[in-house]
Each structure stands twice: as structure tokens, then as C-alpha cells.
Design a protein around this nucleic acid. Structure first.
Length: 203
DNA sequence: TATACGATCACCT
DNA sequence: GGTGATCGTATAC
């Protein structure tokens, strides 16, 4: 059978309904897919960060259960999308059981399908800048708050099993942009592919 | 009602 | 290396 005829497996709810650090690690190498008018925009996930529960001072849910953070308290496998700095969106995937607020921030992709659509939305000189940051990839894939709460086991936005990443290829560092997070600041909860040129800013 | 600020980015020097 | 853009949220009054 031709390779192209084998459908890629969409990650199931059971994948997301596990410890957040494990999900953040295993999302590396998988393919984030956005479908718009039956066209696919996609990229391989090369950088993630875990945000875990109310004790994690970097996690939005540490300031309580509010209308904004409600999605994080819901069941795993949904999108938590929020607006940051008044102009950029960030995409998270909700993990773990209902009432335990946790999510994985998707920080960077290696662009795959739909490059023309991404270039049209991003208007940058180099393809390396298409999806090399959390706000950039949302703009490239047309992800905004209209997708907040969207089911990742649906058809508009989902993640497919793609690449198996060996442990030796995974780097962990503290998370980016959380100087206010006190004791949680230094936790090594950022995961990225070693030596990958498409990641977001270095430390 | 008012105010401060952020899980960022692009452009500047 | 530095800084301005821009607005939804959380919190204070």
C-alpha cells in the first residue's frame, strides 16, 4: 500500500489525560494540524512548556479559577487560547483530569504543510520566522480566541502522531518570560529538540 | 469605574 | 542590546 494512503493517527484524549510533564515531553516531534476550508496548515512541534496546577506560580490557574482559566480546569484534550500583550495569541493543550488545571504551551513548530498560507499570514522574509515562537505559530496557523475551548479530538485543530524522538534529542531548560514566578521560575519545564534551528528565543 | 501588566514580537541601534 | 505596540484580565478602589 502506498505510504500516502495510510492515515496519520490523531492523538486521542487518553494521550492528553496524563501527567503534564510527560505530555509536554511526548508532544515533541508530533504534528500540529490546523484545517481551514479543507486546507491543512501544519508543523512538527519542536518546543513546549508545561504549566501545572495552582502551586505553579507561572500557571495562570495559580491565581484561581476564573472565566479565563476555566478551560484549564476542564477535561484534557481541549485548546486553551489566550491573548497576550494585547496583540498575540498563545496556544496550550489542556492536560490531566477535570478540576486539575494544567496545560502545555506550544512554543514553536518546524513548518510543514500549507507554507503559502503561513507566508501570507506572517509576511516575514525567512521561513524560519514563520512558526518559531508561540505568538508566531498562532498567527501562521490562524489560531485565535475563537478556538479557545476547541476539542483537539475534532477536525479544526488537532495533533497527529508523527516522529518518535529519542531522549538524547530532548533538552530541558527553565521556562521563558516568567520572572515574576518566584519559586517556580527555575523549574526545568521547557522542552525542546536539541540543535533544532526553529525554536524560539534561547535562554 | 480605574489601573497595572503580561507564558510576545518586530524593529531599532 | 533596547523599546513600543495594544487590550483582555485581575485586582483595587
Amino acid at each position: 500500500m502506498p505510504r500516502a494512503a495510510v492515515p496519520a493517527a490523531t492523538l486521542s484524549r487518553a494521550f492528553y489525560d496524563r501527567p503534564t510533564l510527560l505530555v509536554a515531553r511526548e508532544l515533541l516531534g508530533q504534528r500540529l494540524v490546523r484545517v481551514i476550508d479543507e486546507h491543512r496548515l501544519s508543523g512538527i512541534i519542536v518546543e513546549t512548556e508545561a504549566y501545572v496546577g495552582t502551586d505553579d506560580l507561572a500557571c495562570h490557574a495559580s491565581r484561581g479559577r476564573t472565566s479565563r482559566t476555566e478551560v484549564m480546569f476542564g477535561p484534557a484534550g481541549h485548546a486553551y487560547v489566550y491573548l497576550i500583550y494585547g496583540m498575540h495569541h498563545c496556544l496550550n493543550v489542556v492536560t490531566e483530569r477535570r478540576d486539575f488545571p494544567a496545560a502545555v504551551l506550544i512554543r514553536a513548530l518546524a513548518p510543514g504543510e500549507g507554507l503559502d498560507g503561513m507566508r501570507r499570514r506572517r509576511r516575514v522574509r525567512s521561513d524560519r520566522q514563520l512558526t518559531s515562537g508561540p505568538g508566531k505559530l498562532c498567527q501562521a496557523l490562524h489560531i485565535d480566541r475563537g478556538l479557545n475551548g476547541a476539542d483537539l479530538c475534532g477536525v479544526d485543530l488537532f495533533i497527529e502522531a508523527a516522529t518518535r524522538v529519542p531522549e538524547a534529542s530532548v533538552v530541558t531548560t527553565p521556562r521563558v518570560g516568567i520572572p515574576y514566578a518566584g519559586a517556580s521560575r527555575e523549574l526545568p519545564w521547557r522542552f525542546l529538540l536539541r540543535d533544532h534551528p526553529g525554536g524560539s528565543r534561547s535562554m
